[in-house]
Simulated scan of single mutants.
Amino acid sequence: MTKIKLCGLSGIEEIEAANELKPEYIGFVFAPKSRRYVKPETAAELKKQLSGEIQAAGVFVNESVEKIVELLDDHIIDIAQLHGDEDEAYIRRLRQLTGKPIIKAFQVKSEKEIADAGQCSADYILLDSGAGTGTVFDWNILKKIDRPYFLAGGLFAGNVGKAVRELHPFAVDVSSGIETDRRKDKEKMAAFVAAVRKEETL
Rank of each mutant, 00 (worst) to 15 (best):
G153C: 05
Q119G: 02
D128A: 06
A194W: 00
K109I: 02
L21K: 07
G118H: 08
C7W: 07
E111D: 15
E63V: 08
C120T: 05
F106P: 14
L50Y: 02
L202C: 14
F170Y: 15
V59C: 07
E63R: 11
I102F: 02
P148H: 03
L6C: 04
G11W: 02
Y90D: 02
R182E: 09
V174W: 01
I12K: 12
K47V: 00
E70G: 04
F192V: 06
L142D: 13
G132C: 09
R165K: 13
E13R: 15
A117R: 12
L127I: 10
L126K: 09
G52Q: 10
L151M: 09
A80Y: 03
A194N: 09
H83S: 05
R147G: 01
A105P: 10
G118K: 09
T98R: 08
D116K: 10
E200R: 13
G134N: 09
I102P: 01
A157L: 00
F192E: 03
F150Y: 15
I145F: 08
E200Q: 14
D73M: 01
K47I: 04
F30H: 05
F28A: 06
A31L: 01
V136E: 13
H75A: 14
I114D: 03
A18Y: 03
G177L: 06
K162N: 11
G153F: 01
L126W: 05
I4W: 02
E41S: 15
I68P: 02
H83G: 03
S110V: 04
V38S: 08
D146Q: 10
S175H: 11
K100C: 10
K109R: 14
S176Q: 05
T180Y: 06
S10L: 08
G154M: 05
V174D: 05
T98M: 02
V65A: 13
Y90K: 11
M189G: 10
I68G: 12
L127K: 04
R93V: 08
S121W: 00
L71P: 02
G52Y: 00
C7M: 05
K186M: 06
Y25C: 06
E88H: 07
E66V: 10
V65P: 04
D73R: 13
I54T: 13
Y124L: 11
G11M: 09
K162D: 14
F150N: 08
R93K: 15
A122E: 02
G84I: 10
A171L: 03
W139C: 12
T2P: 03
D181V: 00
G154N: 04
V38G: 09
A80D: 06
R92E: 15
R183N: 08
C120A: 15
G58T: 07
A31E: 14
K39R: 13
M1P: 05
E113M: 11
M1D: 04
K33F: 13
E53W: 09
A44G: 03
T133I: 12
A44T: 08
A171W: 04
K186H: 12
I26W: 06
